[in-house]
Every structure is written in structure tokens, then in C-alpha cells.
Simulated scan of single mutants.
Amino acid sequence: MQEAGAPQLIHWTENGEERSARWHSEAGMPPPRRVAIADDRMNADVAYRLACEGTALLWRGDFQNARQLLQALARRTGHKGKGGKKARAPKVPGSATEAFHLHRQAQSQRARTLAMLLIPFEPGYTIPLRRAPDVKLACNEAYGRGEDAFVISLRELLGLIGAHEWRKAGVEIPALGERIHPHYGVFSPVRGEYVQLVAETPLPRGAQLAFDIGAGTGVLSAVLAKRGVAHIVATDMDQRALSCARDNIARLGLDEQIELIEADLFPEGRAPLVVCNPPWVPARPSSSIEHAVYDPDSRMLRGFLAGLKDHLTPGGEGWLILSDLAEHLGLRPREQLLGWVAEAGLQVLGRQDVRPVHPRSQDADDPLHAARAAEVTSLWRLGIA
């Protein structure tokens, strides 16, 4: 039995020898029990059948051919059999809630299948394959120093490479007139409508101190600093988020205005303005980065509301940034949200609304299109009742 806290290992047989290496999965997937060696000779249909059966494919061929095979597997996740025959017609959901759960189930199954194509790493983040890219910098940014060999899914590796490019290029934030550079595992502020709400909503009188609960990339703290708030205390529990926010704040030259603290929700004390952008959907995340989107049982939302009264100065405001997508999916009714507000001894002082403009809100083929098309993002101004 493997000791608690010990690294997980993946085991396989190659050239008649038993081998093993450390297993790495950001999504927390366990190491596959069955592993086959695969190379450039493997047929995509055979690879797809093995992946669906739970057999992982440890790649020993050309790296770029592995990428092409992954693309072929992705095309097959919506089809079955040779010749591209379509799978059975999907179940028609009876409600928006059922549509959401079926969509998440399909996403999870697809992720498991595509995660079966594996890439080996040697110590120092070297990939021992032909035409493999140099990913040392990207891996060091995401994982820290790499001193041992390990195995990772190609899909996760490509996500890491993509995140590295996002980090280099940054995301343009019109409210700042600057770019924010998201780190690997930290949610990117690509949906700028909620940032604009924070930039445009009138500040409470005398708001020279603000708390930013769940800082993430630090974008909302930066917006408040640019608006003239003299001191912002930003909190987060995630080490990657804290590192990311620290980097962005330094890039923007806002170190003297913004203080970063590792804390679960609130720092000590009270402020005339407390801002929080919690995950919007009460569901279980399936990977580390999904914690920014999915909040099981609305834990962070309820924690923010329950503790806000004790951290507001008299006449202060709590700004809750929240989409109503969960309401349109039948996951959290508006009455429940308002009930939590009242139970916390709070009242609604006002609300600023904006319609999302992201591409999926316009995509009629999206399984959740009806809910996305009706979605509204709001900044709720809350005060002590």
C-alpha cells in the first residue's frame, strides 16, 4: 500500500522489463492501471478503442505525431466506429439542470479518454522524443524545479504550454489600459464585463481602504488602485494565485497600494469597501483551474455573505460580482441568494447589470446555449441592514 503523501507512480512493462515513474495529474486523475507502449505506427482507431477501454498509451514516437493522434482522438470522442459513424443520438434533457449535468458528464468522459495519451519526461523537464519542444521554462513556471522523471498526459502538457503563452502575452484590460498576465492554474480575466462593473460603479464615500476577497490574478485590486483607493488588502488561499497577483501588481507598479495576504476569505479588521468575485456555479470542479468557476455548495459565496457584516465599517459596501447563470441552469434560485443575504444581516443597496459578450453566449450549438444567452452578470451593492 502506498503511504499517504507519497508520490503516485505509474507502472508499465517495456521490452520485457517492469518500469515505473512518478505520475503527475493536475486534475487529480489516478495513474492508469493498464499501460501500452505506442508510437508512430499506431492507428487512430486502435488508439481510441484502447483509450475508451481504460488503457493508457505511453508515447515513444515523434512528438508532433502524438499531437496529431490526440487531435484524431478528439474528433472521435463524438463519434464511434470506423468511417466516422456517429454515436447514438444523445439523450434529450428534460430541463436546463439536466442539460448541465449531462454536459458535465460528457466533458468528464471526454477528458478521461483524451488523458490516456501519455508523454514521458526525464529529469530537468526534458522530453525524450523526436521533435519535442523545449518546455523547461513553462514547466518551471507551473511546477517548480523538476528533478525527477515523470509521466503526464499530452493533453495536460499542451494546456500548460498554452498557459505559458497566455502568461507571456497577457490579457488586455481596458479598465486598466494595461495587460494582466495570468499564471498556470489561475483563471484568466478574459470575461471583461465584470471587471468593467468594478471600474464604473461609484465608490462608497471615503473608501480609502478596500478588501479584495479571492484576488486571483489581482485584476480587481489593480482596478481599485487605479481608481484611487489608497490601500487594498487582497486575499487568496491558492499559492499560484498569490504568486500571480504579486507578479501583476509589481508589473503595474502598485506594490505600495496593494497588500497580499494568504487567508481564507477575509483579512482582519473592517473596510468601507469589500469586493468579492466568487465562483459562479455551485458544482464540483474537476481540475484545479475549475475552482475559479465551480464552487461546491456555494461555499465561498455563502462564506463571503456570512462574514461580510463583521468586516464592513458603518456605511460601507460589499460588492458581490456574480453571474445568474446558476439560476438559469436551475442550480441556485434567486430566492435562495436573497435569503442568504437577509440571513447575514445584509441588505441590497443597488445592483449594476451587464450582458456577457463572450463567444459561447452567441453559440447556438452550445449545449447550454439557452442559459448562456439569458445570462446577466451583476455587481450587487450590499450594506448592513
Results as ranks from 00 to 15, higher is better:
residue 5 G to D: 11
residue 6 A to R: 15
residue 6 A to D: 15
residue 12 W to N: 06
residue 13 T to S: 12
residue 18 E to M: 08
residue 18 E to T: 07
residue 19 R to G: 12
residue 19 R to D: 13
residue 20 S to M: 07
residue 25 S to D: 14
residue 25 S to E: 02
residue 33 R to P: 00
residue 40 D to I: 00
residue 44 A to D: 06
residue 47 A to Q: 04
residue 54 G to T: 05
residue 54 G to Q: 04
residue 62 D to Y: 06
residue 68 Q to C: 06
residue 70 L to H: 13
residue 77 T to Y: 00
residue 77 T to E: 12
residue 80 K to P: 00
residue 80 K to E: 12
residue 85 K to C: 01
residue 87 A to C: 02
residue 88 R to D: 06
residue 89 A to E: 10
residue 93 P to F: 05
residue 113 T to R: 06
residue 117 L to M: 01
residue 119 I to L: 10
residue 123 P to N: 03
residue 134 D to R: 09
residue 134 D to W: 02
residue 139 C to L: 14
residue 148 D to Q: 13
residue 152 I to S: 14
residue 155 R to H: 10
residue 156 E to S: 13
residue 158 L to N: 11
residue 158 L to A: 03
residue 163 A to E: 14
residue 163 A to I: 10
residue 164 H to D: 14
residue 167 R to G: 05
residue 173 I to P: 05
residue 176 L to G: 07
residue 176 L to D: 07
residue 179 R to V: 05
residue 184 Y to S: 12
residue 198 V to Q: 05
residue 201 T to L: 13
residue 205 R to W: 04
residue 208 Q to R: 15
residue 209 L to K: 14
residue 223 V to E: 03
residue 223 V to G: 04
residue 225 A to F: 04
residue 234 A to M: 06
residue 235 T to P: 04
residue 243 S to Q: 11
residue 254 L to N: 12
residue 255 D to A: 15
residue 272 P to V: 02
residue 276 C to Q: 01
residue 277 N to R: 00
residue 283 A to D: 06
residue 285 P to M: 02
residue 303 G to A: 00
residue 304 F to Y: 15
residue 317 E to Y: 04
residue 321 I to D: 01
residue 322 L to P: 01
residue 324 D to H: 03
residue 324 D to V: 04
residue 329 L to P: 05
residue 331 L to R: 12
residue 331 L to E: 13
residue 335 E to C: 06
residue 336 Q to Y: 03
residue 337 L to K: 11
residue 340 W to F: 04
residue 346 L to H: 01
residue 357 V to P: 00
residue 360 R to A: 14
residue 360 R to W: 09
residue 363 D to L: 04
residue 364 A to W: 02
residue 365 D to N: 08
residue 374 A to I: 08
residue 379 L to G: 00
